[in-house]
Amino acid sequence: MTGHVFHPGHDELHGVTVVITGASGRTYVGRWHERGPRGITMRDVAIHDPASNPLVLEVWLAKQQKFGVAATEKHFVIPIEEAGSVRRFDSFP
């Protein structure tokens, strides 16, 4: 049973926790579900908004890495025009 995948046919990032930098300045951390015409669909997403979050991004990301992703959105779509760079969370410094 090890390695059995229940959701074949998705792209290579499906199910992987990623960090997406938004054009708005927001940063999104969550599990990549799929890229579609509306944007990138993610699951269990935490969002850093520099306009309202008292923690600077680097500190906020470090907290997510230590304690896990503090998701506020179960399902979330990042519009195409908002989505910038995509990095795997486990490769983040």
């Binding site: 926790t17 269990d44 890495q65 304690f67 896990g68 998701a71 969370f89 486990d90």
Partner: peptide, 24 residues
């Protein structure tokens, strides 16, 4: 304060989490 993820592994010592391996 460790957030839920699955799969994951928690190691507790005397009732406190001392190590946690998250899904990511």
């Amino acid at each position: 304060e460790y957030q839920p993820s699955s799969p994951s592994v928690a190691l507790l010592k005397d009732g406190e989490v001392v190590a946690f391996v998250h899904r990511h």
